[in-house]
């Protein structure tokens, strides 16, 4: 190749461009294309097969007029709210406890994190058995002599979602703990020395000084937990199948049932578009925040 002429831009880095074709296809065709396709077809009356019979916002009207969807949203709100509060608090407390230069730190960390390696199906089935009204925790306590003890959330429509929560926390808090622990370990050791010199009690140092310094880890944890909440599906299928009644139905399951069981694709597309919207509500402020941080620092 002669060095005289500036080569065509298109062929500069050609191998790199060819090698990036799978990435380009994934980003453009799957992530953007398929999402856009679903959003567009949510405005059609597709049933068994996708059809371009435009019905405007009919699917959304019907969606928000359906009891099962409303209950799904309520369940998601309860599950999500509790999951966020408890997993973050518990995760932080666990991380703070492990950060006290204790013995057996590795053992405890291993124990707290192993459920995260397990699938939601395994988690759901395990907790279905743990909470079994005939043989589970209720029976254990009754065998100790507390004959009137009741703890069978999965059979009670008012509490079933909390039974799912128990399983969700068991599976997911370890992850929050790991992120928080990384955040704690990332803080300058001198902060601790300074607060000890100033005579500030430990718990106060954690809340007033350390937590604000861990903003990055906190936000990561919130985003991870929040997006996993919106996606929750396998756990419900395995643990309760959405029951009793509609007590543990969630949006992701609504979508799946509409698309692959009830042959009501349009409803499925509309409901999944709503899920996308929920994620955007979490994601966009976070992205803006990260972008600003990057520009500042």
């Amino acid at each position: 190749m002669s060095g005289n002429a500036r080569p065509n831009r298109l062929f500069r880095n050609l191998s790199s461009k060819i090698a990036s074709i799978p990435m380009a296809l994934t980003a453009l065709v799957i992530f953007i294309g398929c999402s856009a396709w679903t959003v567009v077809y949510s405005f059609t009356g597709s049933r068994l097969l996708p059809k371009t019979r435009w019905v405007g916002v009919d699917q959304y009207d019907r969606l928000w007029g359906t009891d099962r969807w409303i209950v799904s949203i309520e369940n998601l709100a309860i599950y999500g709210g509790c999951m966020l509060v408890f997993s973050l608090t518990l995760g932080f407390v666990m991380a703070a406890l492990l950060d006290q230069r204790i013995r057996f730190e590795n053992t405890f960390r291993t124990v707290f994190l192993y459920p995260y390696a397990l699938s939601f199906v395994v988690t759901g089935l395990t907790w279905q058995w743990m909470l079994n009204p005939t043989f589970g925790l209720q029976k254990v306590v009754r065998d100790f002599g507390f004959v009137d003890f009741t703890f069978a959330p999965l059979t009670n429509s008012d509490f079933a979602i909390y039974g799912v929560l128990l399983a969700g926390l068991w599976q997911g808090t370890g992850l929050v703990m790991v992120i928080m622990l990384a955040g704690l370990r990332g803080i300058d050791e001198d902060i601790w020395k300074a607060s000890r010199v100033d005579g500030i009690p430990k718990w106060k140092t954690y809340i007033m000084i350390v937590l604000p310094l861990m903003r990055g880890a906190l936000i990561t944890a919130v985003v991870l937990v929040a997006t996993s909440i919106i996606k929750v599906f396998d756990l419900i299928v395995a643990q309760t199948q959405g029951g009793p009644g509609l007590a543990t139905e969630v949006p992701a399951k609504y979508v799946m049932d509409m698309m692959f069981r009830n042959q009501n694709l349009g409803q499925g597309f509309a409901a999944s578009t709503m899920m996308l919207l929920f994620v955007m509500i979490i994601l966009i402020p976070w992205a803006v925040y990260e972008y600003r941080e990057k520009r500042r620092g």
């Binding site: 799957i30 992530f31 398929c34 679903t38 997006t227 694709l265 999944s272």
Partner: peptide, 13 residues
Amino acid sequence: FGAFIPYQVMLYP
């Protein structure tokens, strides 16, 4: 960003 899109949105296409 794609990592955060709920899978349900992309399943059918």
